[in-house]
Write a protein that binds this DNA or RNA. Sequence first.
RNA 1: UCCUCCAUAGCUCAGUUGGUUAGAGCAUCUGACUGUUAAUCAGAGGGUCCCUGGUUCAAGUCCAGGUGGGGGAGCCA
Length: 476
Amino acid sequence: MQRERIVNLRDEAQVGREVLVQGWVRTFRNDQFIALNDGSCLANLQLVIDRDATDDATKKRITTGAAIAAKGMLEASQGRGQATELKVSQLEILGDADPESFPIQMKRHTMEFLREKAHLRFRTSTFGAVFRVRHALNYAVHKFFTEQGFFQMHTPIITGSDAEGAGEMFQVTTMDLGNIPKAEDGSVDFSQDFFGKTANLTVSGQLEAELGAMALGQVYTFGPTFRAENSNTSRHLAEFWMIEPEVAFADLASNMQLAEQCLKFILSEVLTSCDEDLEFLENRELQAEKQLPQDQRHDAPLRARLQAVVDTPFQHVTYTEAIDLLMRSKPYKKKKFKYPVEWGVDLQSEHERWLVEKHFNGPVIITDYPASIKAFYMRQNEDGKTVAAMDVLVPGIGELIGGSQREERLDRLQAKCAEFNIPEEHVWWYLDTRRFGSAVHSGFGMGFERLVMYVTGMTNIRDVIPFPRTPQNAEF
RNA sequence: UCCUCCAUAGCUCAGUUGGUUAGAGCAUCUGACUGUUAAUCAGAGGGUCCCUGGUUCAAGUCCAGGUGGGGGAGCCA
């Protein structure tokens, strides 16, 4: 008999069928009612066993966390709280879970505690919901780009390029660290290393994606990226997943349009496919926010906020206008900002938060940043001071998307390389795209975990990836 | 890396100006009950008070250092 998934057994139309289910016990009440979860959905299936016909030894083994198989007739539930229940005729304990030592109890746990039990936290409703939503988001990303005519490109994870400029890199080596080969001048002899040169884990697939876009027209990457920054915040990971579309013949305006369409598509997909999980996460957030002062709570529930993003056009503002708005803001006049506001300095978290949460109160795209605070590959604007860059900011997260129109003019790009101290021989292959059939092109990067945070309402990035990698922590 | 807060039972937390034998709820175990929905009721067991050192007649409590964690900031996605 084939195992059936609980998600398909909750409809009253299924009543009257003989089915087999397998899953993990959430609770066992009254010596009679087993709440069984098999991960297929948030809800449990209620199993009703015959109290008198089941021996005590078996009943003792029906503990929270135990894996069981149950066969029986699906019936309309007599109790409230579920439409169907399984009248069990055959019960098998597949794997015991010692109640004295199984750490996941049917009680509230803190996220911090569950983080230390990351291998078992999937068994909780919250993490089940988060990881089902994470999958749905992953699927929606591929669906969006596929429908838009993009090709996914697998950019290298180990890279020999050291000019990506997006942050500190993890070095990859097979050298014996206790006996590192040295050259005559005492420096490390990387010619004896696996690749015959230094190699690192990628911090971005963008430069390679540009090469693909300059032939396939529109490509996207969706893979792991690695940053060795010593960042200890609730929004940073050393290993995270990033989505990076790159489009030939597209300027900054169409790049912004793509970002907005992409985000709206993804959100509307999960709003329909993950409603039950999102409802649960919405209530979880409401519960958590009860302990916060009024001004730190969201002014609308989770799903309403996401729906509003889908329904409302994104706001646009240039960096220069944003600086102007900030200088005329209340917190600026009352000297509440810790960091200075003036043209040329990067916007700080407090500034972004005021703009996105107080002034615009919704997603906002900031464009045309000063060249000095942005990467070398961004296209110089006609004013000579700014570049064609854009950041999409969302409430609660800050920067969700960062992108730009790329510098397609060889001479300008070469000048930028000199300015940023990037030797041309390190990026010769990148410069070649500007030598042979160069064209206007644009792209952006979206941090996948930040997207998952935004959609699930989770406030710590460590709780939206199964096994977070952060400084001093690579458990599991 | 910086600022700040925290560390007491399996979990979440109380523990007064330093003073006998360190408490509660939940969980667990035992029993009762039996159509429950975080079931209910009665009882029981459960502690290296994070570590090291110091002050004191006396330290869970005060001091110093360390370790681990939360929140915020920087860097960024």
